[in-house]
Computed example of a mutant assay.
Amino acid sequence: MNSSSLQIRLSGLVRCSSNTAAHTNVCRAVTAFDIGSIYSVGVGDRRPPHGQRAASRDFFSHCHPRLLMNSLRSLLAVFVPSWLAARLTRYSPLPIRFIVGYGFMAHGYAKIIKHPENFATILHALGVPAPHLMAWATIVVELLGGFAILIGAFVPLVAVPMIVVLLVATVTVHLQYGFTSIKLMAVVNGVPQFGPPGYETDALYVAGLIALLFSGVGPLAVDAILESLYARVAMRSL
């Protein structure tokens, strides 16, 4: 772009600055390219005339506060709940899926590492019938159910046995210790000592599963890919 064309553009912008409405429109329309072009006038063979430099400073002295306010409004819009909800609602099930799925898998894996027989002994001490069968059933539900929730597959189907496992754990173990799961009792030699956990964690997992049942699994899910298949099966069953 040569100096004469830039001078025409700059003079036109400065003339608009005398009119408030036009000046507002010009300020909103200025792009990074326009600003860079105006500032780069004369960088090369010669500097721009003194009058043109003064006009450029006058233009940016008017536009800079307005551009700053527009940028600030755009930044603050990110913190408006309705603005976020309008754009991110479809992704809201993802954090629930990831934490519930990973949490169940972590508990099932821990029971495998510590040997299922030990878990069966614990169930027997709690008075759970068929402790060996229930131990393996719980591990399978936690591992496979957690993985299914993580990838968003067959969520309405796997959520039922997962909720049953949580309710059994609540009734047989955690309910008698109240609501709070984390009970810091003391710190001995720098090591925190905790009391028996309540049913808080069980309730949070149940709430997460129910939320997925009510709202759907969201994007990046196997169920979203199989939605048409589910619809055909439902039509045939009617």
Rank of each mutant, 00 (worst) to 15 (best):
S3P: 00
S5D: 09
L6E: 04
Q7K: 06
I8C: 05
R9L: 14
L10C: 01
V14H: 14
V14R: 12
C16M: 13
S17M: 15
N19C: 02
T20A: 14
A22W: 10
T24Q: 13
V26T: 09
C27T: 11
T31S: 15
F33S: 11
D34H: 09
G36H: 14
I38D: 05
Y39W: 09
S40L: 07
V41P: 00
G42K: 08
V43D: 04
V43E: 05
G44P: 04
D45G: 14
R46M: 05
H50Q: 13
Q52A: 13
Q52P: 00
Q52F: 05
R53S: 12
A55M: 11
F59L: 15
F60N: 12
F60Q: 10
S61M: 14
C63V: 02
P65K: 06
R66V: 14
L67N: 02
M69P: 00
S71D: 01
S71G: 03
L72C: 05
S74D: 13
S74W: 02
S74L: 08
V78A: 08
F79I: 03
P81K: 02
P81F: 05
S82V: 10
W83N: 14
W83R: 11
A85V: 09
A86N: 13
R87I: 07
T89P: 01
T89H: 13
R90D: 08
Y91D: 04
S92D: 08
I96Q: 00
R97M: 09
F98T: 03
I99A: 08
I99P: 02
G101W: 13
F104A: 01
F104M: 07
A106C: 05
G108H: 03
A110R: 09
I112S: 04
I112W: 12
I113N: 05
K114A: 14
H115F: 14
P116S: 15
P116Y: 14
A120I: 06
H124F: 06
A125K: 09
V128G: 01
L133H: 07
M134E: 06
A135R: 02
W136S: 02
A137V: 07
T138A: 15
T138D: 11
I139V: 15
V140C: 07
E142F: 10
E142R: 12
G146C: 11
F147T: 04
I151A: 05
A153H: 12
F154K: 04
V155P: 05
L157N: 00
L157Y: 06
L157T: 09
V160Y: 01
V160F: 07
I163S: 13
I163C: 13
V165G: 00
V168Q: 03
A169G: 15
V171Q: 11
H174E: 11
Q176T: 04
Y177M: 08
Y177R: 11
G178S: 07
G178R: 08
G178M: 09
T180C: 03
I182L: 05
L184G: 01
A186V: 07
F194M: 13
F194L: 13
G195A: 09
P196K: 13
P196Q: 13
P197M: 03
G198H: 01
T201L: 12
D202M: 02
V206Y: 02
A207Y: 10
A207E: 03
L209E: 03
A211G: 15
L213N: 08
S215Y: 14
G216K: 07
A221F: 04
A221V: 03
A224L: 10
A224F: 03
L226V: 07
L229D: 12
Y230M: 01
V233G: 01
R236F: 14
S237D: 00
